[in-house]
Write a protein that binds this DNA or RNA. Structure first.
Lengths: 173, 173
DNA sequence: TAAAGCATGTAATCCGTTACATGATTTA
DNA sequence: TAAATCATGTAACGGATTACATGCTTTA
């Protein structure tokens, strides 16, 4: 249950609303964990019920600001240190490359070049983010990861495109 | 629906059974897309119903061997080239690093060193796999990605551990 | 005053995991 | 003959996405 702890960790940094939490996920966590509002609200309800967060106050437009409780803080800490991280990862784009041999090499190469361009673009966005003021002392860690990840994807895509091109040339010769 | 196309792509390489497909996922696709037998069997049933695969024959222990149909092959090709890849990725371990500032720096550093060791181990496994004979012409592409990904994770973990250590030293001084 | 954005939620559906259930064949 | 492995499936549950539903407040 990563969403649960992600929310708790963000609320630990400072009191917020569900709506703002969604924006935080969008802005800084999108590359590691996506979350929709429709999933956030019920989860906040559960965290509240369980006493891990409390309502600090209600603003205009029935906006509810939550803050973390001592129990909530203890729970994030427990999660960070005592729960074995889930290292499994899915990558639909990479799954696809297993099957590139099924299509025309020229099309496969074009596909990989397009992907490389997209990853170069993402890399720029994260490099820019790395230059900005971090929200918490540990925020630079995952941002640096995002930079390295995008760069590796871009470089791999170019390597793969070259390889597909060279192999199809060799096959024709 | 990546599982669907992953199965189709594997069956396109050569006729197989559900059981063997699960082993293929375990062996070579585990790092990009995990799949359980209980998910594979119903999906094979659907692919069969839709005429994308057909039963080649039945062996001992009511083992069913499927092969791809022309429609099935057309469908994988369409997926590879015409369907926008899902580049979203979740990474529970990386989400956690957003919240490392909530725990003691010495514990945070120890956590990152443990992670680094795990990624070094995975790196070795994939380097070994990269040395073996590929199952299809495009199989080396995702294997090379796995090697790069694990290496980057290991290096990042060590970088992050050093950073946490240095920052907590600076704070004490 | 209309549009954009803020704000919260429910319902239906889908995908994936875990647990359950069964039985055949090979190997030690 | 017992254990391991092969082999196929169903059922229950949980997490996540998409679609739906509602209404307030600010800004152009």
């Amino acid at each position: 249950m990563s969403l649960r702890h992600g929310l708790l960790g963000l609320i630990a940094a400072r009191p917020t609303t569900g709506y703002d939490l969604a924006k935080s996920f969008e802005a800084s966590l999108a590359n590691v964990w996506a979350a929709q509002l429709s999933q956030i609200y019920p989860e906040l309800g559960r965290l509240h019920e369980q006493g891990l967060i409390r309502v600090l106050g209600t603003g205009p437009r029935q906006k509810k600001t939550y803050e973390i409780t001592d129990e909530g803080l203890a729970e994030v800490r427990r999660w960070v240190l005592d729960v074995e991280p889930d290292r499994a990862h899915r990558n639909g784009a990479m799954l696809r490359t297993f099957f590139l041999w099924l299509v025309d090499p020229a099309e496969a190469e074009a596909y990989l070049r397009r992907e490389a361009a997209i990853h170069r673009g993402n890399l720029e966005r994260f490099e820019e983010m790395a230059g900005r003021e971090p929200a918490t002392p540990s925020a630079p860690l995952p941002v640096e990861w995002a930079v390295r990840y995008c760069r590796e994807l871009a470089e791999w895509s170019e390597w793969a495109a070259d390889r597909v091109r060279d192999e199809s040339r060799a096959a024709r010769a």
